[in-house]
Simulated assay, not measured.
Amino acid sequence: MIFFILFTILPVILSVVMGFTYYNLIEPPRFIGWYNYIRLFLDDDIFIIALKNTMLFAFITGPISYALSFIVAWIINDLSRTLRSIATVLFYIPTIIGVSVYPMWRLIFSPDAFGYLNGTLMKWGFLREPVAWLIDQNQLLVILIIVQLWMSMGISFLAFVAGLQTIDGSLYEAGVMDGIKNRFQELWYITLPSMIPQLVFGAVMQIVISFSVADVSIQLAGFPSTEYAGETMVTHIMDYGSIRYEMGYASSLAVVLFVLMVLTNRIVTRLLNKVGI
């Protein structure tokens, strides 16, 4: 509880308080009221880009990663213990090695003819000249979303694998006696209701991960990216907090991101409750 208060509750409270101040780490914080939030919504064009990109990441990678994590976990659940362990490692490993393979992705999307994607497309006649994939603002966000999806089967996936292993097998036997005829009825009437804690945990974690995208943008698109095409809320916070040292403004950005996460979490929880999960 002490660690939770010191490293979770207290930073959130301090961010809310600091959001109403001007603080540059040198001078004492100066109360300026709602100025940071007015500036944020009315005078910061980059914030609007970051907000749009973050919402795209959240509403594309979030649901797709959540669904893929559960489907893959469900499919491999019936494998033998050894095969299931191997499959779990194979699907989870991109999350572990994600940072180390960014050079591979940069090589794939290299802007010259030696890049794997450009070279392949030019060889097959789809392109006449190389495309600067990671510089072209029209292509950049799509590429970042694809890479993020590849890396997104993380904690939620492991929670689903573990949850499926805890379901009592006698429930499926009873289901057959009660008229369940196929795997999908089994999934809907037994598996999902039996995994309520894991499903809720997975949803919360997926929301946090999808809203806090930053590394993939920094590593592939640069910091800042071309015309801020890959800017997200977290990279915008890093810009003002770690580079410009406008800690008050960075705190107001963090508060907005926190509110977005909380609201999305409430919406997702209600949707799960509506379908009886």
Rank of each mutant, 00 (worst) to 15 (best):
L6F: 15
F7S: 08
P11C: 08
I13W: 08
S15Y: 02
V16G: 05
M18P: 01
Y23G: 03
L25H: 04
I26P: 02
P29H: 00
G33Q: 09
N36A: 04
D45C: 03
L51Q: 04
N53G: 09
M55Q: 10
F57I: 03
A58R: 01
F59I: 04
I60G: 02
I64N: 00
Y66G: 02
I71F: 15
V72C: 07
A73T: 04
I76Q: 03
D78W: 06
I86D: 08
A87P: 09
L90C: 12
L90T: 13
F91G: 07
I93G: 08
I93K: 04
G98C: 10
V99T: 13
V101H: 01
P103F: 08
I108L: 13
S110N: 15
F114I: 12
G115W: 02
N118M: 02
T120C: 06
W124S: 04
W124P: 00
W133S: 06
L134E: 01
D136R: 14
N138E: 12
L140V: 13
V147L: 08
Q148T: 15
Q148H: 11
M151W: 13
S152R: 10
G154P: 09
I155A: 14
F160D: 03
D168F: 11
Y172A: 06
E173F: 00
G179L: 07
Q185R: 11
I190Q: 05
I190A: 09
I196A: 12
Q198W: 03
V200D: 06
G202P: 08
I207P: 02
I207Q: 02
I209F: 08
S212W: 04
S212N: 14
S217P: 01
L220Q: 07
G222S: 05
E227T: 10
A229E: 02
E231T: 09
T232V: 15
M233P: 11
G241A: 14
R244P: 02
A250L: 01
S251N: 05
S252E: 00
L257P: 01
F258R: 00
F258K: 00
V262P: 04
L263E: 03
K274D: 01
